[in-house]
Structures are given as C-alpha cells and as structure tokens.
C-alpha cells in the first residue's frame, strides 16, 4: 500500500525528490515542508495544513486536495494536470509555468495567486474567489469561471476561447482589440 501520512505533525521537513505517488495525507500538519521534484501523482490530501509548502517541479498529476490549507505554497513548473482542489485555501499560491490542464478548483480561495504563463485549458474554477489573481499569458481556453468573482483578476495576453462565465467577461475589448486571443462568450447555464 502507498505511504500513509495521516494525522501527523510533519512541520518543516524536506521530502525533496522522493517517490510518494498515491500517498495519503489526512488531518496532518505539514506546514513549510519541501516536496520539490517529488513524484506525488495521485496524492490524496484532506483536511490538512500544507501552508507554505514547496512543490516546485513536482508531479502532482491527478492529486486530490480537499479542505486543505495551501496558502503561499509554491507550485512553479509542477505538473498539476487533472489535480483537484476542493474547498482549499490556496491564497497567494504561486503556479508560474505549471502545467494545469484540466485542474479543478471548486469553491477554492485563490486570492492573490499567480498563474503567469500557465496552461489552464479546460480547468474548473467554479465558485472560487479570484481577487487579485494574475492570469497573465495564460491559456484559459475552456475554463469554467462560473460563480467566481472573476472581474477582480488580471488577464493580460490571455487565450480565452470557449471559457464559461456569467455576464460580460472582464477581458472583453482588450483581448479582442489586441488580437492576442480569440474569445468566445458563452453565457453559462
């Protein structure tokens, strides 16, 4: 069976480069730990504190996080394809150059997070809080923005074809006029 790190105090430890695919983390305090370069594919995390952890360059494909604190965590260059973050606190998370195709942020707090240069195509951000989020140079094609406060984020030089949202998009004229993106407005459910 896979590693079981449930209900543990693991503050400030360095797990760099370890193969931890499919590990379970439930109800643990894992603040400030380093997981750089780790294989964490299929990781299962619930109701844990992973504040200010370092996941740079790690593989988190199909990882699952719910009700987990990840505030200020670093995900630069990480593989987060089809990962799920349900009801998570990811405020000020750094996702620069991460691969986030199909990622799922249901009802997450993402205020102040940075997604510069990230592929978020087909991602779900539904119900999430996006105040001050930077989506600069992002591929946002097919992203589900419904029930978010997406007017409070930064969308310079994005691709947004097929994105889902209610009302007028915040990137409206700028993106179309600049020719940087083809935009299709789909007016939600």
């Amino acid at each position: 069976m896979d590693a079981d790190l449930s209900f543990l105090e693991l503050v400030g430890l360095d797990f760099s480069g370890l193969a931890m695919a499919g590990a379970n983390v439930s109800g643990s305090h894992v603040r400030g730990c380093v997981f750089a370069g780790c294989d964490l594919s299929g990781l299962y995390v619930q109701e844990s504190d992973l504040t200010a952890c370092d996941f740079r360059g790690s593989v988190l494909e199909e990882a699952f996080f719910q009700k987990t604190a990840l505030e200020g965590s670093l995900f630069h260059g990480a593989d987060l394809r089809w990962a799920r973050f349900l009801l998570c606190d990811v405020r000020r998370g750094q996702f620069v150059d991460a691969n986030m195709e199909g990622v799922h942020f249901m009802d997450a707090q993402l205020d102040g997070a940075c997604f510069e240069g990230v592929t978020l195509s087909d991602a779900v951000l539904r119900g999430s809080s996006l105040t001050g989020v930077r989506f600069v140079n992002c591929d946002l094609r097919g992203v589900d923005f419904r029930k978010t406060n997406f007017h409070h984020a930064d969308y310079a030089s994005i691709l947004a074809e097929g994105a889902l949202f209610y009302g007028k998009p915040p990137w409206g004229g700028d993106v179309a006029a600049g020719g940087a993106a083809e935009m299709v407005i789909f007016d939600g459910e």
Partner: peptide
C-alpha cells in the same frame, strides 16, 4: 488505481469523506 477510474466526473460535495473511500 487510476485505471479503475471511469470517465464520469466524481460529483460529491467538497469536503465529503466518500472521496477517500472511493480512492
């Protein structure tokens, strides 16, 4: 384990323990 996942998206409330059991 991932080979046993179907193509149907899992829809339970965020925070539900059933995700852990399905896993």
């Amino acid at each position: 384990p991932k080979d046993y996942k179907s193509d149907v998206s899992v829809v339970w409330c965020p925070g539900c323990g059933h995700y852990g059991i399905l896993n």
